[in-house]
Design a binder for these strands. Structure first.
Lengths: 168, 168
DNA sequence: CCGAACTTTCAAAATTTTCTGAAAATTAAA
DNA sequence: TTTAATTTTCAGAAAATTTTGAAAGTTCGG
């Protein structure tokens, strides 16, 4: 298979995967494109490659930067901005998981707290079923949260180890 | 807070969370409703509660059953079908993770295999950047997959333990 | 069988999300 | 400062997804 064909297929697949997980297709595609580009790309290059508008490019690149998995790169003597993706997949995964937890899961878990104080007899079947579910979700979320933090720590720890290797 | 108000809020929140993770809002809402209902509900009850059409109810309940987190319950002497949700949150989470992995992640990981065989010099910067990313994603996916299978096993093991408790 | 009760399907409508592109804002070289 | 290059914004257009509801299909008691 030719490189360009393979790249396009990868970009399409990554876009589909993103969509299925609630991530904007274009955002996932830009991410895929930057992942497989050895050098940083300009907005114009992204636009040309993915056939998308400047506005779309701009918004999704910014979003990727907000997630901490793409960064702006300035080349000396060039007016344009270039963009480069974090290449270490484990680090990428950790950042995404951490960020989604923070943005999407934590607010809801907090909101659940307010739902635990229900008027009426705590032994009523309906009330008990409800508060039990809320409590269980909170417990589960707490455990899952610890698990995720553990993974993130692992990553940071391993990163420190890698840095050391550079000096050996 | 009144029970019904809290229920409605929980259902709305669960729907939003679902949406953000690429799950149909109504599907998540039906799931939430069944989670907090002590008894199985009929399609008519779900329709009335969430103010949705029969078709919508039917499709999303079927999808929840496909995921293995809602089951059909037949009451003796009743013509109607009733639906009940798996109440153990850990089990629900494991089923969802397992299923999403199988349906959405695995097909893409398999598709990546075909992208690794690129025409041209393997040392070319562009080609190397591409194949390295694909290889890293596959490695990562393999590890993550093992991790998930481990969690699922934990669940099954723990389930056996719970069964025992019923007899103590 | 028949027909009432219930479930399923799916084309079209409604809604939500995403994308475009031109105007406004910003930046920096001259 | 002026001007040209570049980035950002966002209202409206386009696309994708979800929902409806009525017709078709199924099931089962009599």
């Amino acid at each position: 298979m030719k490189l360009d064909e393979a790249k396009q297929q990868f970009i399409q697949q990554w876009g589909i995967l993103g969509t299925q997980w609630g991530i904007n297709r274009t955002m996932a595609q830009i991410h895929a494109l930057l992942l497989v580009s050895p050098d940083p790309l300009s907005a114009d290059e992204i636009m040309a490659d993915l056939q998308i508008s400047r506005g779309n490019t701009n918004m999704n690149v910014r979003e990727l930067m907000d997630w901490g998995i793409v960064e702006k790169v300035l080349k000396p003597g060039e007016r344009k901005e270039f963009f480069s993706a974090e290449k270490d997949i484990w680090t990428v995964a950790m950042k995404i998981i951490k960020e989604r937890k923070r943005r999407e899961v934590e607010p809801i878990i907090n909101a659940l707290n307010q739902l635990k104080d229900i008027e009426g007899n705590k032994n009523d079947k309906e009330i008990k079923a409800f508060t039990d579910v809320i409590t269980d979700i909170q417990k589960f979320a707490g455990q899952a949260s610890k698990g995720v933090d553990g993974l993130v720590k692992m990553d940071e720890h391993w990163f420190a180890g890698t840095l050391l290797k550079l000096f050996r």
